[in-house]
């Protein structure tokens, strides 16, 4: 009789994902699904998928899902949670979806303290539409709509979403993590689980910003992309907890 040391989480379907090799969506989907399974709430969960590479997330998470218009996931999630407060509601959004067209929606869902959980995938580029500049694209970083590299004189500066949202009283839990090393993957899962716990205890809005790679649009191998993330993204978007209003109670 053999011992099972690792099993695919019940929170993911058997559909093969379309994500590129080296894409961090795969890991992050797993962390979210495992967290929901371990908290015993998978059957009560309703997720909201974005417009972006994760537009097909509704095929990969094994729970009820809504596919939302670009940027509107926090508003859709608000509608769901207000209609069904006993359910667990999460949004899964990229940097274009959340920080560009959805900037108003995320700010106000957080400000209102909506009891939802947002998983924010920050890879500093628009993946799905072919590599355009994102609000989190770094200075000098090349993109389809910044062919010479992001120039602050023309396109301003990248946005530190977590720092911004942490100023809102309705946002009870704001943490930035990465999935570039096994240690960071474990820390990311802890943060994601805590963000869901904030929702379950009725405290309020929780968001986990996950620094992610896009080897395809960055033009790097998977390993190079992780190194680029560490060297360039982490100094600009430091990892750590930016707000945890009830830390003392743990």
């Amino acid at each position: 009789m053999s011992t099972v040391v690792f099993k695919k989480t019940e929170g993911l379907t058997d559909k093969t994902t379309h994500y590129c090799p080296g894409c961090t969506h795969g890991i992050i989907h797993r962390l979210v699904a495992e967290s929901l399974e371990e908290l015993g709430v998978l059957g009560d969960t309703i997720g909201v998928a974005p417009v972006g590479c994760a537009v097909l997330a509704y095929k990969y998470f094994k729970c009820d899902m809504h596919q939302a218009a670009h940027g509107r996931a926090p508003a859709v999630a608000t509608g769901i949670k207000r209609a069904r407060p006993e359910n667990v509601v999460f949004t899964y959004q990229g940097d274009g979806d959340l920080a560009s067209i959805g900037a108003a929606e995320i700010v106000h869902a957080a400000a209102r303290g909506e009891k939802i959980t947002t998983i924010f995938i920050n890879n500093a580029i628009y993946g799905m539409t072919g590599g355009q500049m994102a609000p989190t694209t770094l200075i000098g970083q090349k993109a389809a709509t910044a062919p010479l590299g992001r120039d602050p004189k023309l396109a301003g500066y990248p946005i530190k979403v977590s720092e911004m949202l942490a100023t809102l009283e309705g946002a009870k839990f704001v943490e930035r993590v990465s999935v570039d090393t096994p240690i960071n993957v474990r820390k990311a899962k802890k943060a994601i689980k805590r963000a869901f716990e904030i929702q379950l205890s009725g405290e309020g809005f929780g968001i986990v910003e996950v620094l992610s790679t896009c080897p395809t649009n960055w033009g790097m191998s998977a390993i190079e992309a992780l190194e680029w993330l560490r060297k360039n993204m982490m100094p600009k978007y430091p990892l750590g907890n930016l707000r945890d209003d009830n830390k003392g109670d743990n």
């Binding site: 560009s100 067209i101 355009q132 500049m133 609000p135 389809a144 709509t145 062919p147």
Partner: peptide, 21 residues
């Protein structure tokens, strides 16, 4: 937009990728 981002600056025009439509 990709074409405009490349060509408009050359003629002193202005290109902005807005936050939304």
């Amino acid at each position: 937009p990709a074409f405009m981002s490349e060509e408009l600056p050359k003629i002193n025009g202005s290109f902005v990728q807005a936050e939304s439509e």
